[in-house]
Design a protein around this nucleic acid. Structure first.
Lengths: 143, 143
DNA sequence: TCCATATCCTACTAAATCTCTATGAATTAT
DNA sequence: ATAATTCATAGAGATTTAGTAGGATATGGA
C-alpha cells in the first residue's frame, strides 16, 4: 500500500517547478540538487510528465522545464495517476469482468470505499495547496 | 498503491470464518476451496492471524479455526495492518526522524491526509459490515 | 563554426518484494 | 495405528522497484 518513489518524486518535482514558478526554464539538475534526487532518475520521470503535456521543455543550453499551467490547475491526483497508474488498492475496482467473483464479493465494496477515500484527497489537493503548506512550514510566524 | 494478496486473502479468510460463524472449528482446506485460494498459502496467512490471537486453532483431525471475537469486534484495519503492515502510503508519516526534510516537507502533509483517509475507512468497517454487504449482494430482493 | 550545456531516448541491472510451492514435524479424533 | 489436521520454515520463479549507463539530439553563446 505504498506510493513508489516515482510518484512521490514526480510530485516533489512539480512542486519544485511551482515554487520557483519562473518564466525561465528550470534546469532539471537544479531540481535534482534541491530535492536530493538522482538527476538521471528524474529525467525519466519528467519524460512522463512532458509527454503528458504537464511541462514544457526547452532543449539545449540554457534549457530546462516550465509548468504549462497555473499551479492551482494541477491536482496531485493527476500527477500520481500519471506516474503510478491507478490509485485503487485492487485491480478489480477498475476493470469490470476481471474477477469472476465480482457480483458476490463484499470485499470489493470495501476496496471501492478505500479507493474513493484516496481519490477524494488527491483530486482535491492542487500544487497551489502544496505551495501554501510549504509557506506555512518554512515561515516562523514570528511577529 | 496496491494491497497485496496477503492482506486481501486475510480479509476474505476472516470473512469466510465469520460467514460460517460456527462453534465448530472450520477447516482451512474448506475455506481455501470456497475462496479459491491456495491452501498452503492460506496456512501462512492464518498463522499470522493465529499468532495475533485473531483466531483460535484446534489441532489434529476434525480441527480447524474459529474466530475468537464477535464479527462486529474486528475492524478491517486491524486485519490489514497485521498482514500488510502500515497502510500509510509512505514511511515518513509513521517514523518521525526518518526523513531529514521532515519539517519543511509539504508533501508529507499530503501523505498524511491520504493515510488518514484510508484509516478512516478501514477502521470503521467491521467483519459484520462485510457480512451484511455480502447478504445484500447474494439476496435477490425478490418479494 | 565549435563547444558547453541541456533535453531526450533506450537499455540494462541489482535488489527487493510478491506469490506462492514444498517438505515435513507435531497433534488429535477415530 | 491411521488419517486428518495444524504448525513451521525454506526456497523459488516472476515481477517490480529504483535506479545507472551511455549516448543521441538540440541550442545558446564565443
Amino acid at each position: 500500500m505504498k506510493i513508489s518513489t516515482k510518484g512521490r518524486y514526480a510530485v516533489r518535482l512539480m512542486l519544485d517547478l511551482a515554487t520557483t514558478n519562473s518564466k525561465q526554464p528550470v534546469r532539471l539538475k537544479d531540481v535534482a540538487a534541491r530535492q536530493e534526487i538522482s538527476d538521471k532518475y528524474l529525467e525519466q520521470i519528467i519524460g512522463i510528465l512532458h509527454k503528458a503535456g504537464f511541462v514544457r521543455s526547452v532543449r539545449g543550453a540554457m534549457g530546462g522545464y516550465i509548468l504549462t499551467r497555473d499551479p492551482a490547475d494541477y491536482t496531485v491526483g493527476e500527477i500520481l495517476r500519471l506516474t503510478e497508474g491507478s490509485l485503487s488498492p485492487v485491480d478489480c475496482t477498475e476493470d469490470p469482468g476481471l474477477c469472476p467473483r465480482e457480483t458476490a464479493c463484499a470485499t470489493a465494496i470495501l476496496w471501492r470505499k478505500i479507493s474513493e477515500a484516496v481519490n477524494n484527497v488527491v483530486d482535491n489537493v492542487t500544487l497551489e495547496d502544496l505551495l501554501s503548506w510549504q509557506d506555512s512550514l518554512t515561515n516562523d510566524y514570528v511577529i
